[in-house]
Design a protein around this nucleic acid. Structure first.
Length: 562
RNA sequence: UGGGGCGUCGCCAAGUGGCAAGGCAUCGGAUUUUGAUUCCGACAUACGGAGGUUCGAAUCCUCCCGCCCCAACCA
């Protein structure tokens, strides 16, 4: 990892309230070692919001010499799948974190949790309730009205035990009964109004198979799992704040081996982006995107395929900070971190997205020559490559205007520009097609400007990228725009209505310099003057496919719009 | 009208009684064979509002306003 990234600074000085708490706890001797955990539910792919949590949990453990567990919160087999488990592990690793031997699953603790449930029952703190779902919901009351007890609330411990055991062995169908904690039906906190602990689910589990037909829910599993693993700081997002009293209630009423504490932080939101697993799942299932790893997706897999370096994600997370206030981060922040890393690491190449043919009339027919070109302007260690020049080349359509405005520096009739690393050329003639469209430029070059140097000190206003017509290799280039057409998707109530129709723009006839022909999937380059592009896994021999990770900053384009 | 949180520059975010960090964005300017990068400079008399305590308040107190979360046998 290089340089002055926010990521590194954060390990030195960057404080946040979580790290303050951990440090204070360690200093006070409350724990001899900090233990955190990242607890994904394997019901979808990880997204950049999870990356914030991953960086936090693994980061804190790393910084304070503790450890971070990867624990799957796999308590709901109707939604969870092995594919997601595998993808999550791969994504966390790719992000650069290592849980060592500390891979756990809530399902590892099913027996212990079950025993603890019986413990509550024996102590009169849990009961089996036969009330149908609808009715139970109604009896829980509302935000302003207290709940009412079910007629089953006063069952004896023995009867509850008997019923619960029969639930376990599969005597009852789904939904017939649940196990509930007996807490306080009048509490202002809905989570304390006798929450459900176990439900009957005749459903095979990815890990425990058909061993169980009753499953604990989140509240009954999470805190106890933390306690079993001796997690010291259980960090989650704000919406779980109301669950903390319940989290603590279980720890208070069960013979758990340790006493973890829950802390909450504000989840990540990004403009033009939706970070809701439920919605992302819908995009995939309804075919709005090509899959979980579609480069338009804010998933870790999508960002990776798009060409975003893991270090850029970590850097982004470090830059946005951590707090308890809800906030929406400008997508530009993410783009900044991406450019920051790619600018340093990506080798430069030339590629033309929308080719416009140029014939250099005074360049001898059949002649070619090669230039040695630096792979990186600021990093000689990245070496050089050969770039072939010839009489017929292609430039970018955007780099020519027949009738340019005052500040347009690029090619225009009679104008001279530099071809990057090659020669100065002057546009002499514009060749048009049937409909008056520009199909070709006839130019002349100045042999004295070889290599792009100014022969007599004269200036050109622009330097253009180009490829040799005879040597370039064809490529498909995929440009991505935000998935949503407004910065606050869903603000009007309908997320789907805010989906942008033009989030994918495929350019099938791009041309890349030959040095790109063998580029391996996953590699990222800067196409000079255009942006950063990653080789897509769809690439096959003879068929290059690139994803635009992010464009270069473009003050010209900005001025045009303004 | 219940419970739990949160409000500091356009966007993140430090600050926890002593005279408002930093980053992104933006706007100038320098350098430049990428209108990129880099570099320099500008950018909150002001901390949701109103009172109060204090020599002194974003930081303490009171009231008010606004926003978010909670009524799954999801997590």
């Amino acid at each position: 990892m290089t340089g002055s990234s926010a990521e590194e600074k954060s390990t030195e000085a960057g404080r946040d309230f979580i790290r303050d708490i951990v440090q204070a706890d360690l200093a006070a001797g409350r724990h001899k070692e900090v233990v955190t955990r990242f607890p994904p539910e394997p019901n979808g792919y990880l997204h950049i919001g999870h990356a914030k949590s991953i960086c936090l949990n693994f980061g804190v453990a790393q910084e304070f010499g503790g450890r971070c567990h990867l624990r799957f919160d796999d308590t709901n087999p109707v939604k969870e799948e092995q594919e997601f488990i595998d993808a999550i592990e791969a994504d966390v690793r790719w992000l650069g974190f290592d849980w060592g031997t500390h891979l756990y699953h809530a399902s590892d603790y099913f027996q212990q949790l079950y025993d603890w449930a019986e413990h509550l029952i024996r102590n009169g703190k849990a009961y089996v309730d036969d009330t149908p779902v609808e009715e139970m919901r109604a009896m829980r009351g509302t935000l302003t009205e207290a709940g009412r007890p079910s007629i089953y609330r006063s069952r004896s411990a023995d009867e509850n035990l008997d019923l619960f055991r029969r639930m376990r062995v599969g005597e009852f169908p789904n939904g017939a009964r649940v196990l509930r904690a007996k807490i306080d039906l009048k509490n202002g906190n809905m989570n304390l109004r006798d929450p459900v602990l176990y439900r009957i689910l005749h459903q095979a589990h990815p890990r425990t198979g058909t061993t169980w037909c009753i499953y604990p829910n989140y509240d009954f599993a999470h805190g106890q799992s933390d306690a079993i693993e001796h997690v010291t700081h259980s960090i989650c997002t704000l919406e779980f704040e109301d669950h903390r009293p319940l989290y603590d209630w279980f720890l208070d009423n069960l013979p758990v081996p340790s006493r973890p504490r829950q802390y909450e932080f504000a989840r990540l939101n990004i403009t033009y982006t939706v970070l809701s697993k439920r919605f992302l799942t819908g995009l995939v299932q309804q075919g709005h995107v090509r899959g979980w790893d579609d480069p338009r997706m804010p998933t870790i897999a999508g960002l990776r395929r798009r060409g975003v370096p893991a270090a850029a994600i970590r850097d982004f997370v470090a830059r946005i900070g951590l707090a308890r206030a809800n906030s929406v981060v400008d997508i530009g922040m993410l783009e900044f971190s991406i450019r920051e890393h790619l600018n340093r690491s990506a080798e430069r190449r030339m590629a033309v997205l929308r080719p416009l043919k140029v014939v250099i009339e005074n360049y001898p027919e059949g002649q070619t020559e090669q230039f040695d070109v630096a792979n990186h302007p600021d990093d000689p260690s990245l070496g050089t490559r050969k770039v072939t020049f010839a009489r017929e080349i292609y430039v970018e359509q955007d780099d020519f205007m027949e009738d340019p405005p005052k500040k347009f520096f690029r090619l225009a009739p009679g104008k001279e520009v530099r071809l990057r690393n090659a020669y100065f050329v002057t546009c002499r003639e514009v060749v048009k097609g049937q409909c008056g469209e520009v199909v070709e430029l006839r130019c002349t070059y100045d042999p004295a400007s070889r290599g792009g140097a100014s022969p007599d000190g004269r200036k050109v206003q622009a330097t253009l990228h180009w490829v040799s017509a005879a040597h370039a290799v064809p490529a498909e280039v995929r440009l991505y725009n935000p998935l949503f057409k407004r910065p606050d998707p869903g603000a009007e109530g309908d997320l789907a209505a805010d989906l942008a129709p033009d989030s994918l723009d495929v350019l099938p006839a791009a041309l890349a310099e030959p040095a790109l022909a063998q580029a391996a999937p996953g590699t990222t380059f800067q196409f000079e003057r255009l942006g950063y592009f990653a080789v897509d896994p769809d690439t096959r021999p003879g068929r290059l496919v690139f994803n635009r990770t992010v464009g270069l900053r473009d003050s010209w384009a900005k001025a045009q719009k303004g």
